[in-house]
Design a protein around this nucleic acid. Structure first.
Lengths: 348, 348
DNA sequence: ATGAAAGCGCTAACAA
DNA sequence: TTGTTAGCGCTTTCAT
């Protein structure tokens, strides 16, 4: 074989380009980093040489030399609900602007403790971490504290003031949802909580309670049941609610996934939505508008939360000064078809 | 401040550990690479030193030295449906075993042509690429061909025999679905195709047609409408089907997302499922079992497809020899509540 | 079993 | 404007 016909496609390096263009490697580097101190003609030659050799920068090497990776990590348990999909859409958009890449870390990987895993992630390739909190186990958050690392919490408020975080008006959202039901005449309203270790979940519960009190609706403790933000718990806890006496005429779930579970549970009992019982969720995940009946819910701007999350993270990365910031976006009541005026008016 | 109190938490390097343990950097490297030629006591000391300093290997440097990244890329447009979530679960599991990381590339990033994007991805950090085909634009696949790069196609068969791919028995699955409907007495069966540029979509259509023919059901061309695997097209095309004369008594959608759209469309027309019209999907995404009525469908082993995809990719990466392999997994008819015997028997 | 030394491909002072 | 020279933190021969 002729020797100008390389068999190995060992990727061309910056040196190859330099030789081809008759310049030094540093110059090639400058060209590809868009430094302005390169003569136009030189730049041209370099670019041509690179083109000819099919040169593409080796990211590993660049990252090592620069001491940063231009990648950020997203820690999630799984991708199995629309909630995270929406958030990722926002994250990704914002990342694209800033020329960052996204590494996906799932928390259910075998055989590592949360903190070890976090350590690993942190010291690894990514410059910072985005945590979608409601899906994470609490231990993760605890481990985070011990880390000196750029991260931002998505969909959770950190009252300690130590973390960057983005969330929405949880209290107000829940308040609105419950008020809406009360206005429809409901008085026996079941409430399925999220994981109450999370502030966002607590705030939703508090918003609900406040709405009840502000409207002089008696708070029944048995109508407040513990969920954990996943569909199965929505299903189970709804079943419990439906067995209560008197039975609630409406259910508010602390997120849509649980609301979906509630819909199932209600049908399981042979009841009709919203005729027999109204249901309202929280989040407005894509599925909410494809259920039947379509789910009324409190919309969180998920995509925007993802975007803001990225902004907050880059803020930390780019500024040396990093005073934790917390941003709160507003929720919005989305009325669809899963709620209607209460049927049997009567009991207080 | 005392000088043994570092202010900067400049991550400990292999040298720091070496010094602390009183060995050379090479030895530390050996320990962390599980080479057997290290005395046990030395290993112990190194491990302790590392522990003490909180040492975690710098992946960038390791990758550069090793000439590989131990990351694989997953190319998807978005994460907004359960389909991809299932596949990712499988991918991630398998990756965890092999100690690889996952980079998420979304195709809807601004301002890059498909091929440019692929080039970038390919030459970038990842060792190989996983493509979830049904969600990708055709141009991506065409661009792939020009690349000398390890990749595997998920949920698509490559009849050219040039690509590693994993798919399921599309033809048989569609055949089963249609046969099932025919057995329920349906004769006017609408079919919503996927993107027919894809073999998987074509095979599903062919399976459907074969089932019709094998059962002596007349093929009506107007009952075959063009979808593209997304929910919206399922909705629109179903509307078209519902306006036909005579109206189909059943619809088979080439995937569940479109089946979801079909459910909506049918209700939009004031019809009942399955009473007035039966619907069957393909995939068995998580949502399929949470719709109401629950969607009957043809199950693809999505998670397993993800796992096998990774296996095929690592196979390429680890073996120098890489004879394209194609693996086909079996589908399974999942009967739930969206189909029932036809109402008005009679025609044909 | 361990250390020394070279190098992975790039960036970034510092000179020139 | 360009080249020279050190690294970035790790792996990997090759010696010892």
């Amino acid at each position: 074989m002729s020797d100008n016909e390389a068999i190995y496609t060992t990727a061309a390096t910056i040196y190859d380009v330099a030789r081809e263009a008759g310049v030094s490697d540093a110059t090639v580097s400058r060209v590809f980093n868009n430094k302005h101190n390169v003569k136009t003609t030189t730049r041209e030659r370099v670019l041509q040489a690179a083109e000819k050799l099919g040169y593409v920068a080796n990211v590993q090497a660049r990252n090592l030399a620069r001491g940063k990776s231009n990648m950020i990590g997203l820690l999630v348990p799984g991708l199995d609900n629309g909630y995270i999909g929406e958030i990722i859409r926002g994250i990704d958009q914002e990342l694209a602007y800033a020329d960052y890449e996204l590494m996906l870390y799932t928390t259910h990987r075998k055989g590592t403790t949360e903190s070890a895993y976090l350590q690993y992630v942190a010291n690894g390739f990514v410059d910072g971490l985005l945590l979608v909190v409601p899906l994470l186990s609490i231990t993760f958050l605890e481990a985070l504290g011990t880390l000196n690392y750029a991260y931002v919490l998505i969909d959770e408020v950190d009252h300690s003031g130590n973390s960057f975080s983005v969330a929405s008006t949880n209290w107000q959202g829940a308040y609105d949802a419950t008020t809406y039901l009360i206005q429809l005449g409901h008085r026996q309203i079941g409430f399925i909580t999220g994981m109450l270790e999370l502030n966002s979940a607590k705030e939703r519960l508090n918003g609900h309670l406040a709405a009840l009190r502000d409207n002089d609706v008696t708070v029944r403790q048995d109508l407040i049941v513990d969920g954990d933000f996943v569909q199965a718990s929505g299903f189970e806890q709804s079943l419990r609610l439906l067995d209560l006496e008197p039975r609630p005429t409406a259910i508010v779930a602390s997120n849509d996934m649980m609301a979906l579970g509630a819909l199932d549970a209600i049908r399981e009992r042979g009841l009709q939505i919203p005729h027999d019982i109204s249901v309202i969720g929280f989040d407005d995940i894509p599925q909410a508008s494809t259920t039947h009946p379509k789910l009324s819910t409190v919309r969180q701007p998920l995509e925007q939360m993802g975007r803001v999350g990225v902004q907050l993270l880059l803020e930390q990365l780019e500024a040396s000064e990093r005073q934790p910031r917390r941003v709160t976006l507003t929720t919005q009541l989305v009325v669809r078809d899963s709620c209607q005026p209460v049927n049997n008016v009567g009991d207080t």
